[in-house]
Design a protein around this nucleic acid. Structure first.
Lengths: 127, 127
DNA sequence: ATTATACGAAACCTTTTGGTTTCGTGTCAA
DNA sequence: TTGACACGAAACCAAAAGGTTTCGTATAAT
């Protein structure tokens, strides 16, 4: 379907805190530029540029209504982020499992040195 | 590549494609700077700076072994990303549900205008 | 018709970013 | 002890990012 000319990618688009706040705002409802910029300490033009970047990444859609341009959230491109993230989940899940095992073991033995126990279980000890 | 000792956040850290590739590399195994930089067309020093930024964001941990510094992936900080993302999942899931409903309806009626059907279901129609 | 609003394009400025080269220091190898 | 290696700090640079102000052009309101 409508593949936008990817000048900006999603990762870059959400890197800026202001843009993340804009997305959050637009999650509530569609709104025109002036209203959006009313929520920020920067100029309307600056917000407009952020919106362009978000639009380039496909995270926002615009629609003209009279003399105003209303923007709304378009969340689908975030699926790419989710996919990217999924790859790494196993890493921290493994870490959490290690911690869980440790806590359970400690519950039973209620004696050993915490750090020593973690040291033993930790798999990263080459050399 | 200004590398202030200030904390870099995760969003910013993963914004750069090179840094994402570095993370992926380190996902396979711990490795020293020279080996890492061997996978990229940029200088060792440049890679070193990327590693610093990743370390500031907590995405990477370093360990000195002899004359080399080995880096390894540290995925936990990505949980912040996951939490951020979770907020937006409902949006695209809703979109997908709308599409699903539309497809199912079309299966049954096999006649209506696609766009008209979507228009009716779409909730964003103020004015 | 005239004035006010809404907004983007342009030009411009400063800071940050991603990169380079050069150099100093610590560490292993002969 | 004399090199060779691994690496970070520093100084430097071009380009991108994030802002601002100014201006032109639609559209609405009076």
């Amino acid at each position: 379907m409508a593949v936008p000319s990817q000048k900006h990618d999603v990762f870059q688009a959400i890197a800026d805190p202001t843009r993340r706040q804009v997305l959050q705002l637009l999650g509530e409802q569609e709104m025109p530029v002036t209203v959006i910029s009313g929520h920020f300490p920067i100029s309307r033009t600056a917000v407009s540029k952020h919106l362009r970047i978000l639009a380039d990444a496909g995270l926002v859609k615009e629609r003209k209504v009279g003399r105003e341009t209303r923007y709304r959230l378009e969340a689908e491109p975030l699926m790419e982020l989710k996919r990217w993230l999924a790859y790494y989940e196993r890493y921290w899940e493994n870490k959490l499992n290690v911690l869980k095992r440790f806590v359970e073991a400690d519950d039973e033995t209620s004696g050993g040195n915490s750090f020593a126990a973690l040291e033993i279980v930790d798999p990263n000890q080459p050399e």
